[in-house]
Design a protein around this nucleic acid. Structure first.
Lengths: 288, 288
DNA sequence: AAGTGGTCTAGACCACTTT
DNA sequence: AAGTGGTCTAGACCACTTC
């Protein structure tokens, strides 16, 4: 319909100059020299009252912007077009674009910076690092642990892993096992499962040479950005393996966390099972 | 200044008719018959550039509304005045009131319902119940546990409790100990500390006869509404006392949670220490 | 000075609820 | 029909950043 890629439902494609809802006169019905003709694009379709698939314009704009984020048109860390430009592209007002971006910012998909513009969020940022790392020291300031990788293998997904990641049992996955150290003290034993299809070229070497959070590497090297995660936490006893790796006695109570991380479209792209030693650290959570 | 109780800083008191920023012409500089003179109330004070205490109008409105919530002018569950009415009261546009309420809704202080109005949030709601209860069964739907109260006493605050609740060591506090049962199975042992001053009339009888979440009782009977909490989670071993109460062996790993809850103004009003049995339940957390 | 996001206003109309 | 919140527009000006 429109020159731009706009594809707004039901109403859309209106809003430019003079598009009448149904068969009304082009730009009439408005007071003489009044402020303006809103050219309201929310005009419902001819007979479509009780619209079944009603979606506000700004939600449609939000979806379009999200598509551009997902497709990589604007990459993590980059500047996205200004509100004015997006408004022009989508043929809506700046206020509508603003509301769409407001929600994206609330979901941490983009970050606004007054005077500079709106940027695609990235895991390469101090700010983002602690959004998914909730284990903090009882004393002192939170900081990032060091990793030591024990295993990186291509395997077939066990049934339970496949179920949580919405794969088929036996699908190719990458299995990673590592220990994390805070100030030299082993504190976390972690096992990760990643879809083999997406993380094809992931090797132990790349993991080792990469400094910083793994989500940063995933985002940069594999174009897969984690945007949300769901975590289940329990208390368990250290088994012999964990005890040895964490240099503690078997039977020591540990925090067990099972996390499924999602990328755009609520697609699960990581299963992470961790055991946390909470003698000098704790899992910090804000309820609001 | 104003007829209403408005007390907006720096700018305020403008916005009615024609108030010029400094010494400019009353209602000039605008195009001939243009839409309107916004009578912008954000006009900075005469020489106050780089304003030290700049606060947007809607933040000031938000603070005023929060005050009314805190003072009990509008009680939990009640309808607050409409956006139009508040706009009139504060002498600002509806859009500004809307933005203030948007933030209050995002913080769960109020709830908007299209066509009906904006309501003060309350803990007497299925929706709110699980905002602070994160322990859910591995199988089946989340539901609320039953309580059995073991102790309700007035005591003097130990040093560690006083510190976390911003009281003085030795201040009067109410101590509560209870066990919670899911489907008859003891699963949570909890100790609560409440400021004696606020919860003066709280007795075991009232706790026992009250059905539903304690935060509901606190809100209704003591006018204290919990709006936020900070939680620290660890894994520990069950001691003899917990083992007996939960009907498990001493040494069984348990989730330990220490929660400080806050009311308006970030004032701590509850310390809650819980031990959770996570054999058939888990602590559910969404990272976003 | 120009460009960006941030705030504020005013007015229109839509969707929903209640009378 | 009236009232409420929800969406959309248009325009003005402010605060911040960069050139």
């Amino acid at each position: 319909m429109n020159s731009a890629s706009s594809n707004l439902t039901t109403n859309a494609t209106a809003a430019s100059g003079a598009v009448s809802p149904t068969a009304g006169s082009p730009a009439s019905v408005t007071p003489p020299a009044a402020p303006a003709n809103p050219a309201n694009p929310l005009a419902t379709a001819p007979v479509a009252s009780a619209s079944p698939t009603f979606s506000p314009l700004y939600q449609q704009i939000k979806a379009l912007i999200t598509q551009s984020l997902q497709s990589g048109e604007w990459k993590p860390g980059e500047l996205i077009p200004s509100e004015v430009e997006l408004a022009g592209r989508f043929k809506v007002s700046q206020g509508t674009v603003r509301k769409a971006i407001d929600e994206l910012a609330a979901e941490n998909l983009v970050m606004r910076r007054q005077g500079k513009g709106t940027f695609v969020s990235t895991h390469h940022e101090a700010r983002a690092h602690f959004r998914f790392l909730r284990l903090v020291p009882d004393e002192g300031v939170p900081h990032y642990p060091e990793s030591k990788f024990l295993e990186v293998r291509r395997v077939r997904a066990p049934a339970d892993v496949a179920r949580l990641m919405e794969l088929k049992s036996g699908d190719a996955v990458i299995f990673i096992k590592r220990v994390q150290y805070f100030d030299g003290v082993p504190t976390i034993v972690e096992e990760l499962w990643l879809p083999g299809l997406i993380f094809k070229g992931l090797t132990a070497e790349r993991l080792v040479e990469y400094k910083g959070p793994m989500y940063g590497l995933f985002e940069t090297e594999f174009g897969t950005r984690m945007i949300r995660a769901s975590e289940q936490i329990r208390a368990v006893c250290a088994d012999a393996d964990a005890a040895q790796l964490l240099n503690i006695q078997a039977g020591t109570p540990l925090l067990s966390s099972e996390r499924v991380s999602f990328t755009y479209g609520d697609k699960p792209v990581e299963l992470r099972r961790g055991l946390y030693l909470t003698s000098h650290h704790h899992y910090q959570n804000e309820l609001s």
